[in-house]
Design a protein around this nucleic acid. Structure first.
Lengths: 352, 352
DNA sequence: CGGGGGCTTGACAGCGCTTTCAGAAGGAAG
DNA sequence: CTTCCTTCTGAAAGCGCTGTCAAGCCCCCG
């Protein structure tokens, strides 16, 4: 493989024209079985691999699928990426990953780069780019969105039922006997953060429970944000027995604050997350949360992209959330509800 | 940008030949200032961007740098990736990331794909591919290795002083008064796992402390591995007061086992990690560990790759470890050493 | 036995850019 | 006013592959 062997070499070696070799490569037209065998033999003997650059230039398909992720070092999106890669691995396509850093300019740049590199499709994970822009782009190149419902593109969106998930969590806590809640919300520029918060309020409202404004804080979906939000919540001196977080990462941050203040989980305070990032099962105590099958969503997104590439239509795919009860929730102090802390011993794929 | 504008368009529009435009683009030769201005005006007006595929085909450089990482969803390598991406972001180069899943065949495949796609350089993170193979590959394409010292390629390796780091940890524990240690080692097919274990033993040996074989277990560098290893350690019924883990991820797993068994950290058991993955500062309690500046290492690796591309020589880069004392270590029960649990309140960049 | 139809196959013109080569201009030197 | 360089610039030949086009071949039918 030192001297890159080209299609022309193969053709010469097999005594056929380059066109024929190309045809065999792509199954573009019939070729005499005999010739085909001869060429294929040469191909394997020379270990010939067509140059993707040249192919891309000649027929306009680059065999790569652009992926825009908010960040590369996120527990959450990392798994989705892994799912995408796993699916693409069995195909001639390869992912081209660029991160948008939650900044619209950066996302726009990423998109531009991907288009420039002539990716055959793009998978957009989360992100905060305008629906309008995305819709426009999607007319140039097949696009699927993960974790967000893009207006005018909803057929190729992979989303989860955020409202339903939050309802599960809240009902679980209500069932345990909690009546005093605090909430740490996500970055509300993102749709899912809004949906989760609304569902939190809605579900409680139905149960006749209201939450004072002072017990709603935003944590921007980050660990550090969650930590600080928990500080503010506690500083408010308003009483609450359940702290629900809009994602696991913030729950992790909040956990630290509770630890620092000597508040025991779950005895003094129940704590919940959302997403079931795989480290959540390893928290002390393991976190009660809602499972969002992120890896699977990555897989589905990749498959959807491939379908689009084949010209097939795909429909919106809504994932159903699943409540994962672990050990961070407990009836509030003073209650005598039957403890529901069944052991959810879900272990996820190890990471590096 | 709908109708892809080509160099030929620009040439025509500016009334010059394609060659001239190309020359201006690459600064290949002198061009009359007047013409240059004219062409540049057209370029910006038409928002012309040269097609990378075509450039790659024509001059053999793809403007992409291959990155092989063990997994995409690892807290550890994720940060390194982010570092690489950040540096490349200011250059015309782009990372092309493929994961090797700790499997030699997959790593080999990844390498093949990268070479096929004609990447201009490759950055290899960890991995278990033979040094010999890598050395051979490095003759075809500039290569830098991250977190491993490849024989015959050591000038372009970014590594950390694993032995020194482990020495820091062990000395810290010895200083606190610990004499009974248990150790969870990493995947020993990887060099760094071996170095850390050797240093663990060596440092203790110098202090006159020995560790029974039953208190050494392997956890394969994963959370789940760490969890199970801790189970085995505890089941051995051999006494120990300090559990040192070869990385943070295993410490996280081990933490769960301790929690399940009602063993308090740090009162009953001191626990340490290695790497300072950013979630470690959020563990309950925050983990004492050794900081390995992973993100920085990613940056350095990317810069090294760029240097190589410019034909410059780069030297091996050894990172110095830093002890991060948090709250998971404490003098052993029954001792009355001054507690050294200073609050290491290092917060790292949030992730997604 | 000749003509039409279907298959297989090679020649060739790109895809969009780079780069060599040589011609055209302009200036310095004789 | 030649002659010889220097620049600057355009024509043209690729880079490795695809896809169109038409030629060549064989078979079948009349």
């Amino acid at each position: 493989m030192l001297e890159p062997v080209t299609l022309a070499h193969v053709a010469q070696e097999a005594g056929v024209s380059p066109s024929t070799v190309s045809r065999i490569l792509n199954g573009t037209a019939n070729v005499t079985p005999e010739k085909r065998a001869r060429v294929e033999a040469v191909i394997t003997r020379l270990n010939f691999k067509p140059n993707p650059q040249a192919q891309a230039l000649a027929n306009g398909r680059s065999l790569s699928i652009g992926v825009i992720t908010p960040t590369l070092n996120s527990t959450f999106y990392g798994e989705a990426l892994a799912g995408v890669e796993a699916v693409l691995n069995d195909t001639p396509y390869h992912p081209l990953v660029i991160s948008g850093q939650w900044r619209p300019e950066r996302e726009q740049e990423a998109l531009d780069v991907l288009l420039l590199r002539r990716v055959d499709a793009v998978i957009l994970m989360g992100g905060i780019l305008d629906d309008a822009i995305l819709e426009r782009v999607s007319q140039r190149v097949p696009m699927v969105a993960l974790g967000r419902d893009v207006r005018g593109l909803s057929e190729s969106c992979i989303v989860m039922d955020n409202r339903g998930g939050m309802r599960l969590i809240v009902n679980h806590l209500l069932h345990l006997g909690h009546r005093k809640f605090a909430y740490i919300s996500g970055a509300e520029r993102q749709q899912d953060a809004v949906e989760r918060r609304e569902s939190f309020h809605g579900t409680l409202h139905q149960a006749g429970v209201t939450v004072p404004d002072g017990l709603i804080e935003s944590g921007d979906y980050t660990e550090e944000g969650g930590r600080q939000a928990a500080e503010r919540l506690l500083d408010s001196d308003l009483p609450f027995t359940a702290l629900v977080c809009a994602n696991d990462q913030m729950a992790l941050g909040a956990r630290l604050t509770l630890y620092r203040r000597g508040i025991r989980v779950p005895e003094d305070m129940s704590l919940t997350g959302f997403d079931d990032v795989f480290t959540s099962s390893l928290m002390t105590p393991p976190l009660t949360t809602v499972r969002q099958a992120i890896y699977d969503m990555g897989e589905v997104a990749a498959r959807a992209a491939l379908s689009l590439l084949r010209g097939e239509r795909v429909g919106m795919h809504v994932f159903t959330p699943e409540l994962i009860v672990r050990e961070s929730t407990h009836p509030p102090a003073g209650t005598r509800h039957p403890a529901a802390a069944s052991e959810g011993s879900r272990m996820t794929v190890p990471s590096g």
